[in-house]
Design a protein around this nucleic acid. Structure first.
Lengths: 348, 348
DNA sequence: AACGACTGGGAAAAGGTTTTCTCAGATAGG
DNA sequence: CCTATCTGAGAAAACCTTTTCCCAGTCGTT
């Protein structure tokens, strides 16, 4: 019965409806709706009075009712099989960032590699009338374990293999690899090696080819790319191969991911080889938690996943809005993040 | 005009409504609804005929319409400020796992540490009539930058500081630390040191106290806990302090997280000190990507975040269902994951 | 004075489902 | 044969908002 009790109940009970706002303002619900949405014709005073009443009552329109009518729920689903979120999370951040300002919320669904789970999540999303779906994964060259081809709502693929005829956003791995190798060339490195992941990954081939191309363009010799698991351990082993055999060792190593790069750097240090003085190292992914912990900190290629997510979110939004868009894969540029493992230019 | 064209249109156009099912089955929508939900009274044949019709037409009820009526949306919001998802993601996996079987979907909202963004997301969730909210963060002893206290929907806190009077789930850090130190005692280590994070974290104190308690219980000397950043670099420095000074060095080190532990292990190896023969090391968090990359692989304390998520999800569900629950903080046990960095029992 | 155009605002349908009532017919009991 | 009970099913309200008409009054024009 204090003054608190006078104000609180307005919010403490069930949400305020438009009907209540209309009653309080002495108009019909139709007028109230139009006043709040800037539609219809009425005197400025009436409109303002209704708005003021709504504000005072703490009115917030019921999204469910709006969605039912508008056939638009302002929600989208994000499907992923990237359990640890290495790639999905930055991507999700970008998506969310692009959508939240449009009042769109995101259902996150981790389907692992489980068909049944995928089916379950997709059906749940469909039942909830999501406006669209963004599919993302941990590998650019694999499909999610779920069929999104004939869904009657728009689907955008990001960092995963799109269905034919669909829209997909991926990082430009070739461009990223070129960035790294060209940087080494610019720094005056002459014997550049490449240590990467398993041959079963499409990106491994794309990057290796870019590596060879750039070296050829600069008239430099190419090492045979060393392929193995995406692990620190493999980085170690690769160094043993590069420096243990008889051949002339490299003065730079471009690694397929940051974990390999970390293994390489550790192995070089254990051999008394200085990074970056004797050998420069560049990684891929720019996983800060790894790149900043190596000694010295790791120069790496960033795939701009947040931008990728933004683009995907925006593309989905315009698709939902009815704008047609050409199917196909859009490659977004990578970015070189220079730290200390690659060395400085000759004159620097 | 092919036989495909005969079947496809049923699914290709707008979703099938209950009205259409009812018409096709020759009953009223009321009867159709009751048939599908197992409500009302009718002959078994009628019920089955309606169900068969619904199945054949691919009917799926419109969640929006159901939610509007039932005042229950079968969605919950997950709020986090843990950008990289270190802690949120396993937790989210647990939440999602607990809820998906109940048809509940999860809105993931990353609010960073931004008040405005937090407000925005919470309002969006409220507008969409989420049934409840799970708040989670990257620190057990901090609040999210958003007030969830008087929300008229249930809120459960997981791995973040709950509001007074609310329900929270956290890991039992004291128990976890005891697990680690007791394991060292069991292995016959006598001089156990503790290297942990910044004093500003509550868990640092809790774990340090547990460390001291266990040593006291075993009549062993305690080192003064070494506090610093949660980084590999600090692990290195701490080793320099423990082994560089005059005092008798430890034969075991309990680290506050896995990154520190990794720095410790690397530093020990550089000094020619064998892990686990000369010094055992145990970490905290069981972050597999780190724990499995150290040489030797790191024994660590796992906080069972997925279970924490499951519990939080289930608790929220029962709250939403109207079951009352006592407020307070529930501590869930940690788990010791033995790898190779801690050594084996004397006789083993 | 009569007509048209405009103005401010309301009534009602629509969106898809659930649930409460109601009701006609069938069965059983006296 | 007449009433009480039960059975199967439908009509309609409800959830909350948006939008399309529609209407009554006012103003200006001839």
């Amino acid at each position: 019965m204090s003054s608190d009790a006078e104000q609180a109940p307005i919010f403490a009970n069930r949400p305020v409806t438009l009907r209540e706002v209309a009653a309080a303002a002495g108009v019909s619900v139709a007028t109230a709706s139009k006043a709040l949405n800037g539609q219809g014709r009425m005197t400025a005073e009436t409109r303002e009075r209704i708005r003021e009443t709504a504000r005072h009552l703490g009115f917030r329109p019921n999204s469910l009712a709006q969605s039912l009518l508008r056939k638009r729920s302002f929600t989208v689903g994000l499907l992923t099989n990237d359990t640890y979120g290495r790639f999905s999370l930055p991507l999700m951040a970008g998506v969310s960032d692009a959508l939240v300002d449009n009042g769109v919320s995101v259902f996150l669904c981790n389907v692992e590699d489980d068909q049944r789970l995928g089916q379950l999540h997709v059906e749940a999303m469909l039942d909830k009338r999501v406006d669209g779906i963004i599919a993302t994964g941990k590998r650019i060259d694999r499909h999610l374990p779920v069929d999104l081809a004939n869904l009657r709502i728009p689907v955008v693929y990001a960092f995963t293999q799109p269905d034919p005829g669909a829209i997909g956003f991926v990082s430009d791995d070739v461009g990223g690899a070129r960035l790294a190798v060209e940087h080494f060339c610019r720094l005056g490195r002459r014997r550049i090696a490449h240590v990467s992941g398993p041959a079963s990954f499409a990106v491994v081939h794309a990057r290796a080819q870019a590596y060879r191309d750039v070296l050829a363009e600069h008239g430099l010799p190419a090492f045979e790319p060393l392929l193995g698991p995406w692990s620190e351990g493999w980085g170690h082993d690769a160094v043993a191969r590069l420096f243990g055999g008889g051949g002339e060792p490299p003065d730079a190593i471009f690694c397929g991911n940051d974990q390999i790069a970390r293994g390489v750097i550790d192995a070089l240090r254990e051999r008394g080889i200085s990074v970056p003085d004797d050998v420069g190292v560049i990684g891929f992914d720019n996983w800060e938690i790894v790149a900043e912990a190596t000694r010295p900190p790791l120069t790496s290629i960033d795939m701009n996943l947040a931008s990728l997510g933004r683009e995907a979110g925006l593309a989905l939004l315009s698709l939902v809005g009815g704008q047609p868009a050409a199917p196909g894969i859009r490659k977004l540029p990578c970015r070189l993040v220079v730290r200390q493992s690659c060395g400085r230019p000759p004159g620097g």
